[in-house]
Amino acid sequence: MTEENLRTLVRQIVTECASAVADPNAIPIGISNHHIHLTQADFDKLFPGQKMEKFKQLKQPGEFASKQTCDVIGPKGTLEHVRVLGPCRSHSQVEIANSETFKLGVPAPIRLSGDLAGAPSVKLRTAAGEVTVQGVIVAKRHIHMSLTDAQRFGVKLGDTVTVEINSAGRRTIYDDVIARPRKDFTLEMHLDTDEASAANVQSTTVAHIIPKVQSTF
Rank of each mutant, 00 (worst) to 15 (best):
1 M>N: 10
1 M>D: 10
2 T>L: 07
7 R>P: 00
13 I>T: 04
14 V>E: 14
16 E>P: 00
16 E>R: 05
17 C>K: 14
20 A>Y: 03
23 D>E: 06
23 D>K: 02
24 P>C: 13
25 N>A: 15
26 A>C: 02
28 P>K: 05
28 P>L: 11
28 P>C: 11
30 G>D: 15
31 I>H: 00
36 I>P: 03
38 L>F: 07
39 T>W: 03
40 Q>G: 02
41 A>Q: 15
41 A>M: 14
43 F>K: 07
43 F>G: 06
47 F>W: 13
47 F>M: 12
48 P>Q: 05
49 G>M: 07
49 G>W: 12
51 K>Y: 05
51 K>F: 08
52 M>S: 10
55 F>W: 14
56 K>I: 02
56 K>R: 12
57 Q>E: 11
59 K>C: 07
63 E>T: 10
68 Q>A: 03
70 C>E: 06
77 G>D: 09
77 G>L: 11
79 L>F: 01
80 E>K: 10
80 E>C: 02
81 H>V: 01
84 V>E: 03
85 L>A: 04
90 S>R: 12
93 Q>S: 09
93 Q>A: 02
94 V>H: 02
95 E>N: 13
95 E>L: 14
96 I>F: 06
98 N>S: 15
98 N>G: 04
107 P>Q: 06
108 A>L: 13
108 A>S: 14
110 I>Q: 14
111 R>H: 12
113 S>Q: 08
115 D>G: 01
118 G>T: 06
119 A>M: 03
121 S>L: 06
121 S>Y: 04
125 R>Y: 03
131 V>P: 04
134 Q>H: 12
134 Q>W: 02
134 Q>V: 08
135 G>M: 02
136 V>E: 08
138 V>M: 01
139 A>Y: 06
142 H>E: 12
149 D>K: 00
150 A>K: 03
151 Q>K: 15
152 R>S: 04
159 D>S: 05
160 T>K: 11
162 T>L: 00
169 G>K: 07
171 R>W: 01
175 D>G: 08
175 D>V: 03
176 D>P: 06
177 V>S: 06
179 A>Q: 09
183 K>D: 15
183 K>Y: 13
183 K>Q: 15
187 L>R: 02
187 L>Q: 00
191 L>Y: 05
192 D>F: 12
192 D>S: 13
196 A>I: 01
198 A>V: 10
198 A>R: 14
199 A>V: 04
199 A>M: 07
200 N>M: 11
203 S>I: 07
204 T>V: 11
207 A>T: 08
207 A>G: 14
210 I>E: 05
211 P>I: 10
212 K>N: 13
